[in-house]
């Protein structure tokens, strides 16, 4: 073999080996960068996938401008167009949101499909509104016949939205309402209590969530309880919501046994030291014997146990001078 040929063969073998090794390493490295690659297309588009997606997006926007509205006649075509954009650019956050929103009323299942893909895409993780919209469509526009587990999925989506953006109260409300709807659908709550209507269900869902908060605060909570019981909503907010709903339920369903049992449980566990009137659930002041709102007798507090004088704080009674007993 001639020397130059031998040299060429050696260089070729070495360079092919290095290229192959580098390409494999890059393929591995790329999986960390391009995490949503499996959502994309394998069509040979010469590396212009994103550019094609941009053009398809502008065509879609233009096409939507020509429509009178979304209806049965054009919904499949819109779904196909949105999917074509998202196949070419699986990280297109606005595409998921706009697509989901566009189809939500006429084709909620298709809308959920698009939004769920967007919500589960880590490159779109900065967006809270995709899982929120997915949860909204699942909870309000999809029917049980179309998707029996829609409420569980809605809950998961709202939970994801709260984890991404906990600042909006309406996202937290939506999460609690989805939980309440599921409880209402199930019919039964804890201790054999039957769920009676949406307010009652909402109270139950708030209480369940509050228990999670308490589990997190308990020093002796098991690691499993801590993981499974992490609440997405602050305890103070849950208490405020529970009080408002309980007061409403007292007015709307005062005689219902299940409702009363639930309210009693909530007052006993959540508002044990809050001095609420057992009848109207409004707070009463120190020294009050009767509720100033409903006239119901209440358990008095804030008075000296020896002389009955109103205490102003501190360690001694301002009238008899005896030390204040703390029960």
């Amino acid at each position: 073999m001639k020397k130059s040929v031998f040299r060429r063969v050696v260089i070729l073998v070495v360079s092919v080996g290095i290229s192959s090794g580098l390409a494999s390493a890059l393929l591995q490295e790329r999986r960390y960068i391009d995490i949503s690659a499996e959502l994309g297309t394998n069509a040979p588009e010469g590396g212009f996938n994103k550019f094609i997606a941009d053009i398809q997006w502008m065509l879609l926007v233009h096409h939507c401008g020509t429509l009178q509205g979304v209806n049965e006649g054009n919904v499949d075509d819109l779904y196909r167009r949105i999917n074509a954009v998202l196949k070419n650019d699986p990280d297109f956050t606005e595409g998921y949101y706009f697509g989901g929103l566009l189809l939500s009323v006429k084709a909620p299942l298709k809308s959920v499909d698009i939004l769920t893909r967007g919500a589960n895409n880590e490159h779109c993780a900065s967006s809270w509104n995709i899982p929120f919209l997915a949860g909204y469509v699942l909870a309000n526009l999809v029917t049980d016949e179309q998707m029996p587990d829609r409420l569980e999925r809605a809950e998961r989506m709202f939970a994801l939205a709260i984890r991404r953006q906990s600042g909006f109260p309406f996202v937290r409300s939506a999460y609690l309402r989805a939980k309440a709807k599921r409880l209402e659908k199930d019919g039964k709550w804890r201790n054999g209590i039957v769920v009676r209507g949406d307010y009652h269900a909402f109270l139950c869902s708030c209480y369940d969530e509050w228990l999670k908060t308490r589990a997190m605060q308990t020093t002796h909570a098991t690691p499993a309880a801590r993981v499974g019981g992490s609440s997405l909503i602050a305890g103070a907010e849950l208490k405020e919501r529970m009080l408002a709903v309980s007061q409403q339920l007292k007015i709307e369903m005062p005689r219902n046994k299940d409702v009363r049992r639930t309210i009693n449980m909530v007052v006993e566990k959540v508002f044990a030291n809050e001095h609420l009137c057992p009848e109207c659930l409004l707070p009463y002041g120190p020294g009050d014997k009767y509720c100033s709102h409903c006239g119901h007798s209440v358990k008095m507090y804030g008075v000296c146990s020896y002389c009955g004088a109103l205490l102003h704080g501190g360690d001694y009674c301002p009238k008899c001078g005896r030390p204040v007993k703390v029960k």
Partner: peptide, 29 residues
Amino acid sequence: VLYGGITPDFNIFNLKAESAHEVAISWWY
């Protein structure tokens, strides 16, 4: 050997979507 060694993969240089969406690309890559 076949992949990247004999046949090219020009997609290695195609991180257009990631660049446009401002996804971090390592200098090592």
